[in-house]
Amino acid sequence: MKDDRPITERAFWTEGGDRPSRWLITCDHATNRVPAWVGGGTLGIAPEDMARHIAYDVGAAGLASRLAALMDAPAIFSDFSRLVIDPNRGEDDPTLLMRLYDGTVIPANKDADQAELRRRLDRLHRPYHDALEALADRHLDRCICAVHSFTPQLRGRPMRPWQVGILYSWQDVRLGPPMVQACREAGWITGENQPYDGHLEGDSIDRHALKHGRPNVLIEVRNDLIADAAGQAEWAGRLAPVITATLAATGL
């Protein structure tokens, strides 16, 4: 599946849709793009804020692309900023359209009404999730690996020590805890459901993995480690064999 609209309008893109792996790599926060029909292409915040983690997951798209290629797996990427509308939130989540994030007010969202929210759902959020589910359905034994990144430090908060975070829901502990152990055995400072909790009702993993019984894991990599192509390639090379071996060891 692909979004055939012009690149300035599309909601997502895919790579390797016909690759045979049972894994599907997802990247919910791949870009910081603001479509022209949203505020004329700007959310009203400074360019330096649009380059921060509040607008997208820095380095995650490159990591996900390299990881998918190494694992011979399909991958899907959102193509709109999480500040336009967050694809990793359910449609009734109050943080779906953020008005304030890590100390930055989002002017284009401050007065957005329900009609504007529906427009962004219809043109961006829903097409992305429809495409993700279509890719997931292509394999009877699909596993989902969601790739994200996190900032080393939120404003006014302590530094985060982890290199990698493995997130999972208490509703499915088949793959998450073994991944935590495998990452720690590899020598990485690994957070278990840190820096974020692994279960959020209506998020991408809940919607496309938990509700279908698909094995899943969400990987967060600290964004200073994958800010450039070299770091993305290095961490993809580290993570791919660990992910593959951990799934095999579980017998899922």
Rank of each mutant, 00 (worst) to 15 (best):
A134H: 01
V164L: 15
H139C: 12
D122T: 08
T151Q: 05
D130G: 09
R119E: 14
Y128P: 06
D102W: 07
G156L: 12
E116K: 00
D111G: 01
R138T: 14
D137H: 12
R138F: 08
P158D: 02
D113L: 03
R99G: 12
L124Q: 09
W170C: 08
P161F: 05
H125A: 11
H125R: 09
V164D: 03
F150Y: 08
E116S: 04
Y168F: 15
A136W: 00
R155G: 07
D137R: 15
Q163K: 13
H139S: 12
D122Q: 11
M159S: 12
A134M: 01
R119P: 00
L100K: 09
C145A: 13
A134W: 00
G103A: 09
V105A: 15
E116I: 00
E133H: 04
I166E: 09
R142H: 02
H139Y: 11
L124I: 09
H139A: 14
I144M: 14
I106Y: 03
R157N: 04
V105G: 07
C145V: 15
G156N: 11
S149D: 02
D111P: 00
M159P: 12
T151I: 08
Y101Q: 10
P158S: 01
D137L: 15
A115L: 10
R99E: 08
V147E: 02
Q153S: 12
Y168K: 05
A131D: 07
D111W: 01
P107M: 11
S149M: 03
N109R: 13
A134D: 04
A134Q: 05
F150T: 04
M159I: 10
Q163V: 13
P127Q: 11
I144E: 05
L154H: 04
R142C: 15
R157H: 10
L121S: 05
D130H: 14
D130M: 14
R118T: 10
T151W: 00
W170F: 14
R142N: 04
G156V: 12
L140K: 10
Y101W: 07
H129S: 07
R142A: 14
V147C: 08
R118A: 15
D102K: 05
T104D: 01
I144H: 06
G165Y: 08
D130L: 15
W170T: 11
A112I: 05
G165K: 11
P161W: 03
E133A: 10
C143L: 08
I144N: 05
L167W: 02
H129G: 06
L132R: 01
L100H: 13
N109S: 11
